[in-house]
């Protein structure tokens, strides 16, 4: 009797799990079918027009490339991931600290904001060789470039976020005789979080781009180096596979930041207006 009951509960659980999985699929069905459709279309175009593989490989060629070059892709993805993550961390850290300084000292803001804008205005591609000349061919120039790409959007958003606390909120803290650091920790930093995460989501994807661009300049490792090598040797399927990996890396970093954001920010700005 009890066996019957437990097996029924088990079946119900399985059905619930199936339902949930089906639900996820159903929700993302438009995106999934659109992607599948485009891949099939691409395959058909390559077949029908007999496009040579070196010019544009078919999805099946790319799939083979993944299988044949799994080792190369894996060993070159790790340094790119490391550069992107470290660049993301340091670039954003410096931007956040600088934004906090700017908000507390208008002199500092006036002095350094224009310089930050100028550095942002230098094309990253032009900056990469300069940094390679200074720091050599190791990880350092790549981390710096990935960091620089993250730095500016975070600085701009963070300054705006720290200033987003309403004047009434600051009056309240003054009536409570709160110190500057109490205002920073209790009001300014929490109210800047939505602004910060908007910037971090941009930074998550662009840090991967920064690392790859840095690897183009005379590097012997990383996804950027694989892209250059595959291009010059007409190994188009490998080139495409590398691009897919690079994009996946950026999407994963973006996803991680989004999950942390959803966990951290459960509130909405107060006021019905």
């Amino acid at each position: 009797m009890s066996q019957v009951v437990s097996s029924r509960v088990d079946t119900e659980r399985k059905i619930a799990l199936l339902d949930a999985t089906a639900g996820v699929f159903a929700r993302h069905m438009p995106a999934i079918s659109a992607a599948m459709g485009l891949i099939v279309l691409w395959q058909l175009v390559v077949w029908v027009f007999k496009i040579p593989t070196f010019m544009a490989p078919s999805p099946i060629d790319v799939a083979y490339a993944f299988q044949q070059n799994a080792g190369i892709l894996w060993t070159n993805m790790l340094p790119t991931l490391l550069e992107a993550v470290l660049g993301f961390f340091f670039g954003n850290l410096v931007a956040i600290l600088l934004a906090i300084w700017f908000v507390h000292s208008s002199t500092a803001e006036k002095a350094f904001y224009p310089i930050a804008v100028f550095i942002k205005a230098i094309p990253i591609i032009a900056l990469a060789p300069i940094l390679v000349l200074i720091f050599g061919n190791g990880l350092a120039p790549k981390i710096i470039i990935a960091g620089l790409i993250c730095f500016f959007p975070t600085l701009v958003n963070m300054v705006q976020g720290l200033k987003s606390a309403s004047p009434a909120m600051l009056d309240l803290m003054r009536v409570l005789s709160a110190s500057n650091s109490e205002i920073l920790w209790k009001v300014r930093l929490p109210s800047s979080m939505p602004f910060l995460f908007a910037a971090l989501k941009i930074a998550a994807t662009s840090s991967v781009m920064g690392a790859i661009v840095a690897e183009w300049i005379g590097s012997s490792f990383g996804l950027g180096a694989v892209i250059i090598e595959a291009t010059y040797n007409f190994r188009s399927p490998l080139l495409y596979a590398t691009v897919v990996i690079a994009a996946a890396l950026a999407v994963v970093l973006f996803f991680i930041v989004s999950v942390i954001e959803a966990r951290m920010i459960r509130w909405k700005p107060a006021g019905s207006h």
Binding site: A168, M169, V175, S177, V187, S191, W267, K268, A270, G271
Partner: peptide
């Protein structure tokens, strides 16, 4: 500084988080 008074603003000024 001695907390003799408290202030209530037109806006509730609650910290939303």
């Amino acid at each position: 500084e001695g907390r003799d008074f408290a202030f209530v603003f037109q806006d509730a000024t609650l910290l939303p988080w």
